[in-house]
Design a binder for these strands. Sequence first.
RNA 1: GGAGAAAUGCCAGAGUGGUUGAAUGGGACGGUCUCGAAAACCGUUUGGCGCAAGUGUCACCAGGGUUCGAAUCCCUGUUUCUCCGCCA
Length: 424
Amino acid sequence: MLTLQVLRDETNTVLEGLKKRNFKEAEDLIQQVLENDKLRRETQNTLDSLKARSNADSKKIGELMKAGKGDEANALRAAITQDKDKVKSLEESLTGFEKKQLDILYRLPNVPASIVPAGKSAEDNITVHEHGKVPALYAGALPHWELIKKYDIIDFDLGIKIAGAGFPVYKGKGAKLQRALINFFLNEADKAGYTEIQPPIVVNEASGYGTGQLPDKEGQMYFVNEDGLYMIPTAEVPITNLYRDVIVNEDSLPIKNVGYTPCFRREAGSWGAHVRGLNRLHQFDKVEIVQISKPEVSYRILDEMSLHVQGLLEKLELPYRKLLLCAGDMGFNSAITYDMEVFSAAQQRWLEVSSVSNFETFQANRLKLRCKNKEGKMELLHTLNGSALALPRIVAAILENNQTEKGIKIPAVLVPYTGFEWID
RNA sequence: GGAGAAAUGCCAGAGUGGUUGAAUGGGACGGUCUCGAAAACCGUUUGGCGCAAGUGUCACCAGGGUUCGAAUCCCUGUUUCUCCGCCA
């Protein structure tokens, strides 16, 4: 959520930024929030002075009572009672202004960073880096949804039987490959200085608000009605919310955490073309890196995180490209996002396997995640995160790109983790 | 799941209706002393909102209520602890 301060002080910058996103209500909402803010402040002013008066009077009553002047106290008491209604109605309208302010702020997306290109859709994204060669496959090459049947490593039908569509069952070498990838990703993050976290995979409502999944995207998350808990769509939610309402010690920055969790997404309405096999699931595994930093270094950290993700793809010998998302294709919370896409040779498609984003203060403002700077002032921090990496599409690409007539060759870096070189 | 107790500042811990944003102790930070350190002594140590400043206002788990006035009384919720039950 944008800060009121920014909306007040840099109204035009915000407006331009939101237009770049193609966010049509920008002008209207900003005007509303500024007007509302003015009314809110005026109301608080009157309310505060009214309260100041009655606080002073109440104190006086106390003193009169002590002094045994009951009559005078009673007279004053009667006078104060008159103010009570006024206070009450002012308080009500103040609450109204505050509520409206929050309602509007929740609807305003983040302002894109200056280097983010304008644009409406994925077509306007910019490829900033490419790496690796698309492998030439042999004549009988298969897409991964055929390969998993051929080698009996992932079973969708069994998943349907015990849960539903989009909940695959990994078997034998398929399960081991999953485990190997998770361990490989966690070890690489560990080497890069991230602290491993195992968070709960359900979160409460406050956490959903903290990272921006709520109030808008409840339809995307599985909800446990009985207990008011949401199944996490990504480890970003619990791991970032660890720092909700926290004032971080400046010396401990940047904070670098990594977590492996299953992720749950309802994906309501997004089924259709291109969602076969592992391309889109309701439950999948992901290793997520999360950093919290001082504002002045967050863009350096964004690069560091991207390079970490790129390094993983390179070690896995997967051809990939790095996209700078255009403003219109970026998530609601993000100021800048790089997507990493891997080429899956049998499908002849680029698959998104990672999104690395800087949210600047957008999440921190909701989370009340701050630190006290050298001047002793409170300052919102920047939050960043990135998938490092999401498993299913990586698995799909490995299976498709590494298939040969005699089986699927496991990338060399993974062999110490899998304990086998071939799926055959 | 049942019964009881509790929730106060960075920590410990007072306070049960009237200058209590909050005693006291500890910790941390700054200073004096010292070649340096320890000890001792002095000082500083919560945040939100509003205003040009000094102030004002709000906050003692959360949300309601009683009262001229609530950390203190009442209601609801949450969490923690103890006992019983159940159980990976």
